[in-house]
Amino acid sequence: MRAAVLHAPGDLRVEDRPAAAAPRPGQVRLRVVRAGLCGTDASEFDHGPVLTPLTTAHPVTGVQGPIALGHEFIGEVLDLGDGVEGLAVGDRVAAGAGVWCGDCRWCADGRFNLCRRYFTYGLNLDGGLTEAITVEARMLVPVPAGIDDDNAALAQPLAVGLHAVNRSGVRPGDVAVVLGAGAIGSFILAGVAEIGCRVVIAADVDPERLTTATALGADRPVNLREESLADVVAEVTGGDGADVVFEASGVKGNPQLAQQLLRRGGRLQLVGLHPGGTELNLLDLSVREIDISTSLAHVCPVDLPAALEILRKRDLSALLVERVVPLDRIVEDAFGPLAARTARGKFLVDPTPATA
């Protein structure tokens, strides 16, 4: 079968791989229907390895060397291992991609994304940019009828956005700011739109992203090149400040800006990654009792079903997907634009073999 395999930065090859293994107890073999690409995939391709074990064996999976990317995928059940319940051959399922042990203290607390032995298909071992894959059944959720393949393929990244929303404690009636309306910011906006906030402010430097943000549910788009976000927040809140600010950009200096936007007792939700570190005013955090929360990935049994429920009600693919590309064209038509930063939306991959 064919798979998109990362060998080194800039070296992604669509090549033949052995067929997906027969499922062991607790596993399911899937025909992959759609796979999504995100900024993490683009980073691994452009200047990795960061998360992929290309040069060092992963401590949990033991995998080292080239791997098939793809941690956002949906599929059709081909066959089931012993002990799998609630699924049947022919079912469409969304994959959470991350797998947890179920035995450690973090799993006991329901924080499966922090599991001591957590690993992710497509980052720590072969993933969904392939024709078929065998994975753990525990991370699969059936796709409800009425959700088409392109929309269902957004379930995993939407679950990541919903986890950030849940961690933030945002409530109905709040004023929420999403700083950075790109890939993850868009999914945060889709989640915040379900809360019933008084005002949702979306801030970015890209007018097209802000147009999409408005369609997703933002009440007040702010182009950071043309307006002062601090002035807009002050105007909307009568000078009090926002209840919650999501820092989803990963841009240097934006965590400090986010802190300044908050009211006394507000919450800063850090979602964008800042590998170089950042400085925050700790005195200000203390005297204004500002809470800081962070988020990583998602809690599959909670966030993935919730994402599918939103996708059942809303066609987010019409707003967020730029195009669907065949697997054999993934480098030229998807990773190329992602690495060059010319992509305007999300890319999905159809691994279905071409017919003569």
Rank of each mutant, 00 (worst) to 15 (best):
S186P: 09
G173P: 07
A176D: 12
A203T: 01
A203P: 00
A203K: 00
V178L: 07
V178Q: 08
A193V: 01
P172K: 10
V177T: 12
A190F: 04
I188F: 11
A203E: 01
V205I: 15
V199L: 00
C197L: 00
V200L: 13
V205Q: 11
I195C: 10
P172R: 13
A202W: 03
G173S: 08
A181N: 09
A183F: 15
V205C: 07
R198H: 11
I201D: 08
V175R: 03
A202E: 02
A190I: 06
I184M: 14
C197M: 02
L189E: 10
C197H: 01
L179P: 10
D204G: 02
A183I: 14
A190G: 04
A176Q: 13
V199H: 06
G196C: 03
V175A: 08
I195L: 14
V175W: 01
V175L: 09
A193F: 01
L179G: 09
P172A: 15
G185W: 00
A183S: 14
A190R: 08
C197Q: 06
L189C: 13
I195H: 14
I195M: 06
V199C: 09
V178W: 02
F187S: 13
V199D: 08
V177K: 10
A190L: 06
G185P: 04
G182R: 07
G173F: 07
C197N: 02
V199Y: 00
G191A: 04
L189G: 08
G173C: 02
A176H: 10
P207Q: 04
A203S: 07
I195D: 11
C197F: 02
P172I: 02
L189K: 13
V200C: 00
S186C: 12
V199A: 08
V177I: 12
S186F: 07
A203L: 00
I201E: 03
A193K: 02
G185I: 00
G185M: 04
R198E: 15
F187I: 07
V175N: 10
D204P: 01
C197R: 01
A183Q: 14
D206F: 03
S186W: 05
G182M: 11
V205S: 11
G185D: 07
I195V: 15
A202D: 07
I184C: 05
A202I: 10
V200G: 01
G191C: 03
